[in-house]
């Protein structure tokens, strides 16, 4: 009995050290893993990657494990977008020469780092406030709301070749993100990131739920396409 406890304790602290160590050593240079969120624009302009200190409130664990092994671009203009644009003949364009590939992890490392990230849940309060109403929306209706009535397409891609580029692509959002996070972030980006470059568009509850359902529809289609 005593031995078992000892083994558990050792095993636990060993894992925490190793994984806390990896996040700290390999990721903290670009990612905020401890909080608080960015409070000034000076700091926002210096950001080298999205904040991960609320990762457990935000991501789907299975997505983290697979993306970390085979990362692909999510923000077409990198981070922060203003550092990756240049003037072109028709206006500003993305300067792809300044974008770099994300570090890829082995399966074992991806699995243990993902587990570590999922423990970071400082915003359980925000998540607990949200409820996902069941429902579906056709791609056409969703697109109409997203593009025309709500104006979200200005900053987000809803397919690889359609939409704005200063925000993350959204056709993969439902695969990447927990639905409560999506709802909460649309309701108030500033509750998560006071200096977010996404404005609060003051959506009604009905429209917020519509957007989650639409993003689910989009992600399913993206999966079927493979």
């Amino acid at each position: 009995m005593k031995r078992m406890i000892l083994v558990t304790v050792l095993g636990f602290s060993g894992a925490v050290l190793a994984e806390g160590g990896m996040l700290q050593e390999s990721c903290a240079a670009c990612h905020n893993i401890k909080g608080p969120a960015t409070q000034t624009l000076k700091a926002a302009f210096e950001k080298k990657g999205p904040a991960l200190f609320y990762a457990g409130n935000k991501y789907r664990q299975e997505w983290l494990v697979s993306w970390l092994q085979k990362p692909s671009r999510i923000r077409p203009a990198g981070m922060y977008y203003g550092g990756h644009i240049k003037p072109g003949p028709k206006g500003d364009e993305i300067d792809t020469s300044t974008l770099t590939d994300h570090i890829a992890l082995s399966k074992a490392d991806a699995t243990s780092v993902a587990a570590e990230l999922m423990k970071l849940k400082p915003h359980n309060d925000l998540i607990a406030k949200e409820k996902i109403e069941s429902g579906t929306i056709s791609k056409q209706m969703g697109e109409m709301a997203f593009n025309k009535f709500l104006g979200c397409m200005a900053c987000h891609l809803i397919e690889p070749e359609y939409g704005g580029v200063s925000g993350p692509e959204l056709y993969t959002a439902a695969k990447r993100l927990q639905p409560q996070y999506i709802v909460s972030f649309i309701r108030s980006p500033q509750a998560w990131e006071p200096k977010s470059m996404m404005p609060n568009k003051n959506l009604s509850e009905v429209n917020i739920q519509k957007m989650v359902h639409y993003l689910e529809t989009l992600s399913k289609e993206a999966t079927n396409g493979h």
Partner: peptide, 13 residues
């Protein structure tokens, strides 16, 4: 992001 780095309405979006 929309109005452009010169303010001329030619942003990256």
């Amino acid at each position: 992001q929309c109005h452009g780095s010169e303010g001329t309405g030619k942003g990256v979006n």
